[in-house]
Structures are given as structure tokens and as C-alpha cells.
Design a protein around this nucleic acid. Structure first.
Length: 255
DNA sequence: AGCACA
């Protein structure tokens, strides 16, 4: 049987990423994207914009297609500012690479769209509908992503288990057995794991303080404000598939 | 939802 392709589009040096959290400042997003994606290879540039039509999306331009492919597979669905990234190959070649391979042609200047207001009804379609009348009272925090204590699957709609051919879920190891500790011990990290990547993951749980990646050992420590919060994070992320092959193993750190 | 390059 034909296995389904990793993407419906042909491999490309550029990855198209969407479903990004557009509440986050675009420069911040670009920086974080760079940190996360750079773990898979050299990055030429990242394009992201904040206009209505283009927000929530980014183009990650790699130096090698293999790096792009790896990142696509490994980071598919990865919770980035609390939203699972959707990743695909870009449909076309980025200007940045066209400039390098000599195929770049100056693209036509943006055609300034003439206001075409006579779309049929003039009155009903009137765009003048005052935006002033809606100053909405309840506006949530604009930069801080919301957090809750529900399981990660419920919140981000991503079940790492189902994207994997693993017969069983990760072993619940020491859940409830080991001495609770506000510091978690994380094992089974993929070699591409970075501080940023881990922060993205663990900061979703209230009380997150910091993550300490131990170089060369594929393990990390993650601090929360108290044992209870550490426990919530541990339950939520136990067995989390960092990559299709590698699942996190979490336990309380030794005192 | 939305495939850009200013």
C-alpha cells in the first residue's frame, strides 16, 4: 500500500508554517522560530509579516533541503506559543534562494488595488460600518499565551501518540511514586532539542520557571514554582513525542 | 484561513 507522503508538495528549501499565534509580536516569533528551526540546519532567512493577510504564517528558508525535510517531520504539530505549528513545504521558491541561484527576477511592483466599491449593493456592502462602536470590554492579555491545567491534547488538539507507530503509550514510570519535587528530570531528549524548544513545551504549564538542558546528555531539568505544578506538567507531558521516534520520559528530580 | 519576498 502506498504510504501517504509527508507533504503533498514537493520538497523545497523553504518551509511554509502556519497556525502561528498572531497575538505574539512578529519579531519575537521570528526569533523563536529561528531558534527552534536552526536545530535542523542552516537557516538563510525567515519571512513573517503582520498584515491581515499574512499574519500567523512564516516562511523558513533553509540552506539544505534535507534540513527542511527533517524540521518538517520533527516539528510538525509542535506547540509553539501554545498553538500547534502546521508545516508544509512552500509552494514556490523564495527570493532569497533565487537570488543565490541566479534565477531571481525583480517582481512587479505591488499593484495598488483600486477601491472597487460597486460590488452590487452599495448600501448594504458599505465598508464604512463604524468599527468605532465596538470597543469590546473584555480584552485578554495580548502577549501572554493563555495557560490552563487541562491535558496538552485537549488544549492544543494534538495527540503525539497518534502520529507515531508506537504500540503503547509511554510508560507512566514514577508517576506518583517518586518524591514530588518542584524540579522535573527530563530524559530521552532528541539531540536537536534546544532550550527554546523545551521552554515552549514546559511553559504551557503554570508555575514554569526555567529549563536547564544538560549538554551532551540528552537530559534536562525543568523548574516549577512548586511540586504541584511540576506534577501537572509531568502528567501532561509524560510520553510527549518530541519527534516521531523519541518520547519524553519525565520524573521528579532527585532531591 | 491565509503561500511572501516591502
Amino acid at each position: 500500500m502506498a504510504r501517504k507522503p509527508i507533504s503533498d508538495l514537493p520538497p523545497n528549501l523553504t518551509l511554509y508554517v502556519n497556525n502561528l499565534n498572531d497575538k505574539i509580536n512578529v519579531e519575537t516569533v521570528k526569533k523563536s522560530l529561528r531558534e527552534v528551526f536552526a536545530a535542523f540546519g542552516g537557516i538563510v532567512d525567515i519571512v513573517a509579516m503582520k498584515s491581515l493577510k499574512r499574519r500567523g504564517q512564516a516562511w523558513i528558508i533553509f540552506r539544505e533541503v534535507s534540513a527542511a525535510t527533517n524540521a518538517l517531520k520533527s516539528l510538525q504539530g509542535f506547540p509553539f506559543y501554545n498553538k500547534p505549528m502546521r508545516i508544509n513545504y512552500a509552494r514556490s521558491k523564495s527570493d532569497a534562494v533565487a537570488k543565490v541561484d541566479g534565477t531571481y527576477v525583480e517582481r512587479p511592483k505591488k499593484i495598488v488595488k483600486r477601491e472597487d466599491l460597486r460590488k452590487g449593493k452599495t448600501a448594504a456592502a458599505a465598508p464604512a460600518a463604524a468599527p468605532a462602536a465596538a470597543p469590546a470590554a473584555a480584552k485578554p492579555a495580548e502577549s501572554a499565551p493563555p495557560v490552563s491545567q487541562k491535558s496538552i491534547q485537549d488544549r492544543i488538539g494534538w495527540n503525539p501518540q497518534q502520529s507515531v507507530n508506537a504500540p503503547k503509550a509511554a510508560p507512566p514510570k514514577n508517576l506518583g511514586v517518586a518524591e514530588p519535587n518542584k524540579t522535573l528530570f527530563v530524559e530521552n531528549l532528541p539531540p536537536e532539542a534546544t532550550d527554546t524548544m523545551l521552554s515552549m513545551l514546559f511553559r504551557q504549564y503554570p508555575g514554569f520557571q526555567e529549563v536547564r538542558l544538560i549538554p551532551g546528555r540528552n537530559v534536562a531539568f525543568v523548574d516549577y514554582q512548586n511540586e504541584y505544578q511540576a506534577g501537572m506538567a509531568m502528567q501532561g507531558l509524560q510520553g510527549f513525542a518530541m519527534t516521531p521516534e523519541v518520547k519524553l520520559a519525565l520524573s521528579y528530580a532527585r532531591k
